[in-house]
Nucleic acid binder design. Structure first.
Lengths: 237, 237
DNA sequence: TAGTGGTCTAGACCACGAG
DNA sequence: TCGTGGTCTAGACCACTAT
């Protein structure tokens, strides 16, 4: 039985009304008292739903005057939100494939041990993967996952070449957030050959540490992405 | 009179305990009932404080077992969080200067009008700025702000060459979030000369739309940042 | 089973915004 | 002034985790 809390239902209902345009951009929502009565719940419950809508910028609140639909057309295309963790690449109508170039167990190099908060030389799974989009090389990824987190991981055991999906379904690990350092680099000859790009051409370089529900560092990764595949993100103040 | 709500005081108190190590990493917090009694408030108020601590990843929650200090050492150095909006560059102990290369009022070009949700050719303030860090060129920025949002802006009227600070203090506009597209490019000759970099070297390219409290698009900006000045960010799932 | 967090109630008073 | 959101109470029952 999927137990769905009321505030979730209210959130979804209001979100749907905004998505369909029933509640238009910049429209004023019914007052919180009114919503409470309409849904037959207390005002605190309504506010829980509104808190969540505010956190994703679907509404804006103005003390003393009311709650309003955010004047934005994000609806439908969430491109501006970072993609599901599964992939740095946008894949709306695109086919993303993965070639696992390397998968081995090694002692954690210094920077990796730091990033994962491990003692140096503890065992880690090390992956090197090439991502293609519609058959065209898009990114190179090098990842390290503590062996203890995902023991016995094999090339065949990976789901669609997706580390995140594999962690979730085979190991029950749900990633919650990631810290990233992003910069630009010129590709090495080795990298440019794999990516079928001109040697020395520019690429987006990302170094990421991803964390699980309990805040444990689960993955440390470097990636090099061709400029044709930009990164979308949203930053809060 | 700054009226400070209880949940804020509780949040700050717990955050301080975590920062000082009084509540150690991975330590279990007192139960919510216990905290409510200790602070002399209801449990809902305690939960409001805990909600906020959770949202910044200072604690993790486990239904049935308790709330725990997140096993992270973010404390103190928030480098991983994106800087104050004022600047894309990290400036911990560094001196950031700005040269305003250009400031003019122009009809909005197509892409700009799209980004700001304006009608084409509406008047916008157009800036071109060079950022230096400790005297070394770091980034070029080109920004557009609707004239209606910041009328009468002059080079002299800018505070420290900072658009965000100027918007906040001269126009009372507080930016709330921004959508960004990030990729890598090779610098043009013009750009590389200004940045004192080798022509054709790689740079981080960012296209950003920033939004104010009411969700209005306030700024559209392109920037080119040298690889020595990476971008730090945190992504939630 | 006991203890914990997750959800929810039915009120209350305050602070802010607009007329 | 009046309606709105912001904060808060003092409980309640449920769902999950660990023992």
């Amino acid at each position: 039985m999927a137990r769905i809390p009321m505030y979730r239902l209210i959130e979804d209902d209001l979100a749907a009304q905004i998505a369909t345009g029933e509640l238009d951009v910049e429209a004023k929502l019914p007052s919180e008292h009114e919503l409470a009565e309409r849904y037959g719940v207390s005002r605190m419950t309504v506010r829980q739903a509104l808190d969540r809508l505010e956190s994703v910028h679907l509404i804006v609140r103005h003390q003393g005057s009311g709650n309003f639909v955010s004047p934005l057309q994000v609806r439908g295309r969430r491109l501006t939100h970072l993609t599901s963790f599964t992939d740095d690449l946008m894949g709306v109508n695109r086919k993303v494939d993965t070639v696992v170039i390397k998968l081995e167990i090694v002692p954690a190099p210094g920077a990796v041990a730091d990033g994962l908060h491990l003692k140096p030389a503890q065992a880690v799974n090390h992956f090197e993967r090439l991502r293609t989009v519609d058959g065209v090389p898009a990114a190179l990824q090098e990842s390290w996952v503590p062996y203890a987190v995902a023991p016995g991981l094999t090339r065949e055991g990976m789901i669609d070449g997706s580390l995140y999906r594999t962690l979730r379904h085979r190991y029950g690990i749900q990633l919650q957030w990631a810290d990233q350092i992003i910069t630009a680099v010129q590709l090495t000859t080795y990298q440019s050959e794999l990516l079928e790009a001109a040697s020395g051409s520019a690429a987006l370089s990302t170094r990421r540490t991803a964390f699980g529900r309990n805040g444990q560092a689960v993955e440390f990764a470097d990636s090099w992405t061709l400029p044709q595949f930009p990164l979308y993100t949203r930053i809060d103040a």
